[in-house]
Nucleic acid binder design. Structure first.
Length: 269
DNA sequence: CGGACAACCTGGTTGC
DNA sequence: TGCAACCAGGTTGTCC
């Protein structure tokens, strides 16, 4: 569920709680939440290590450890919640707990799709990810290069984490609406003007969503359990049948590359 | 390479 | 009310 703005909000909240702290103990309640290495080795790799930094890369949370990196991907319903020691919150969906010197970090996940991993080098493990959309590494030129000769729908291009990292279904739809581009358009048919508009729209949408601390449709929460406020700022996602805020036409919904896609039939071409 | 689809999971919503 | 079908923000792997 969490896309770039949600993960960014989580990392900002978690950073002040965990950086400089030592992982005293790791509790694994759902072993399949551990992607690699096997759960026992994962626990052994983490216990006793100090967390030296916390970053986001695409939709991944990256914990910089003294030896290796901790990677967390929350997929659809994963949450990272900070619980004070001894506090007994709802632990029905608790999958993995990191017990720090003075706090507990809970990875809770209804659908059990989220994953944690310990890797020797996070940069290497995430090398296939494309540039960060809000960094200088993401340029119109690299978007154009990715679009060239590709007949896939432009929406599929935005969702391809190798092209640009961190965009999911919500912000792909929002950016395409802002740019006035229909989601089914073959990527290679976009003009340089359209590519420029899309590039700008992607960055603008993500920045706005970060300012609003992410979008909560149902499950997303920040590390304190608080919902994001960006839902009411969405222009197309989840608004099928409602009027387009730009032209008044009815927002439509169709399936593109297996994902529900929301768009305005009148002002997206 | 691209596209379709299943798998991984549970729970909320919808329709009969 | 009961129950089955369907749907969901993501990623990965398989098959054609």
């Amino acid at each position: 569920m969490p896309e770039l703005p949600e993960v960014e909000t989580i990392v900002r909240g978690l950073r002040e709680v965990v950086v400089g702290k030592r992982i005293e103990r790791v509790e694994v309640y759902w072993p399949r939440s551990i992607a690699e290495p096997d759960p026992a080795e994962f626990v052994a790799r983490l216990e006793g290590q100090r967390i030296q930094g916390l970053d986001r890369r695409g939709k991944y949370v990256v914990g910089r450890l003294e030896h290796g990196d901790l990677l967390i991907h929350l997929r659809m319903t994963g949450q990272l919640l900070v619980a004070a020691r001894g506090l007994d919150d709802d632990r029905r969906y608790l999958r993995v707990a990191l017990v720090l010197d003075d706090a507990r970090v809970h990875m809770c996940d209804v659908r059990k799709l989220g994953r944690l991993a310990w890797v020797p080098d996070g940069e290497v493990a995430l090398a296939s990810l494309g540039p960060e959309p809000l960094s200088a590494g993401f340029t119109v030129e690299c978007l154009a290069a990715a679009a060239a000769r590709r007949r896939v729908p432009v929406k599929a291009l935005l969702l391809d984490q190798r092209v640009v990292a961190g965009i999911g279904n919500i912000y792909a739809d929002e950016a395409l609406h802002t740019a006035g581009i229909a989601p089914w358009r073959a990527a290679c048919t976009l003009s340089s003007t359209e590519l420029g508009a899309l590039w700008g729209a992607v960055r603008q949408e993500l920045e706005r969503a970060i300012e609003n601390r992410g979008t909560t449709l149902r499950d997303y929460r920040d590390v304190t359990g608080r919902a994001g406020e960006h839902r009411e700022a969405l222009r197309v996602y989840g608004r099928a049948g409602e009027p387009c805020l730009r032209c008044g036409a009815q927002i439509a919904r169709m399936v593109i590359c297996g994902r529900s896609s929301h768009y305005c039939p009148a002002c997206q071409h």
